[in-house]
Design a protein around this nucleic acid. Structure first.
Lengths: 121, 121
DNA sequence: TTGACATATGCTTATATGGGAATATATTAT
DNA sequence: ATAATATATTCCCATATAAGCATATGTCAA
C-alpha cells in the first residue's frame, strides 16, 4: 500500500513545506496565483497544483475575479490539526517542568543555600 | 521530485493515521512493541517500521528492557506542529465570530425586538 | 475574431511508500 | 548450545508523488 494521497486530509496536505508557506501567505488576505508564484519563486503550474491539493481538503477557498483566481486560507480547516497536537500539550509541559526541577537541583548542589554534607562532589 | 520522506520531519511522520494512533497510545506510559501490535491490530513488522519513522524524527524514544523494547512518546517533538497550527487560531476565531454575527442578524430580522421597516422579507 | 494574459491540466520521470512474507538479530530460559 | 520469545530488517509490489514542460481553458482588450 502506498502513502495516503496528499489530498486525502489536512494532515497529508500540510506535510509539504511549500503548501504551508502558501497557507501562511494567503491568511492575512486573498491573493491571485501570480502573487504566490512571485513570493515563493515557484513555477506557475506547481503553484496551481499545490492550490488544487489545498482546495481539495478545504484548506483554501477560491473565486474568480476577472482573469484572476483569488485564493484565501480557510483557517477553520487547520483547527483539527491544532486540536490533535494540543492533546499532547500537558505532556510536553510536564517534561519541561521536570527539566527545570533537575536544573534547580543541580544548582542547589553547586551553590547550596544550606551546606550539603550528604553528597560528595 | 517525489514527496519528502516520511522521516524527514514531524509533519510528514504524523501524516500517517496509524502513526498518530501509536503516538496517542504511547503518551500516558511506555509500551513494548507487542502492546501496539495488539492494540492497533497491525502486523508486527508494520509496527516496527512505523516506530522506526517516529524514532527518526524524535517523536518517540526507546530503550531495551530484557527482550522487549519500550517506547514512549516524546511530546516535545509535537510542539512545533502545535505552534504552527496555533498561528492560525485567531483567524478561525474571527471566522466563527462573523458566523455568529450573521446568525444573530438573521434572528433579528425574523423576530425583531424593534420593528424593522427598512428591509422587505 | 485575434491576441495577450492568467490559470489549470496532462504527460513524463525518479523516488518513496506501506503492507505482506520471509528472515535476521537480540535476549532469556533450559 | 539450543529453543523460545520479541523485535528489526529485507525484499517485493502497486501506487502516488513534485517538478518540468507543453498545452488547454478562461477572460479581457482591440
Amino acid at each position: 500500500m502506498p502513502r495516503a494521497t496528499t489530498n486525502s486530509d489536512a494532515f497529508n496536505a500540510v506535510a509539504e513545506p511549500r503548501r504551508r508557506e502558501i497557507l501562511t501567505l494567503l491568511t492575512l488576505r486573498e491573493h491571485p496565483v501570480g502573487d504566490i508564484v512571485i513570493a515563493l519563486r515557484l513555477a506557475q503550474p506547481s503553484v496551481s497544483k499545490h492550490l488544487r491539493v489545498l482546495r481539495d481538503v478545504g484548506l483554501v477557498r477560491a473565486h474568480r475575479k476577472g482573469r484572476r483566481v483569488l485564493y484565501r486560507t480557510n483557517a477553520a480547516a487547520i483547527r483539527p490539526l491544532y486540536e490533535w497536537t494540543k492533546t499532547f500539550e500537558r505532556f510536553w509541559e510536564h517534561q519541561l517542568l521536570r527539566i527545570k526541577e533537575r536544573a534547580e537541583a543541580t544548582a542547589q548542589k553547586s551553590h547550596p543555600a544550606v551546606p550539603n554534607h550528604k553528597e560528595e562532589t
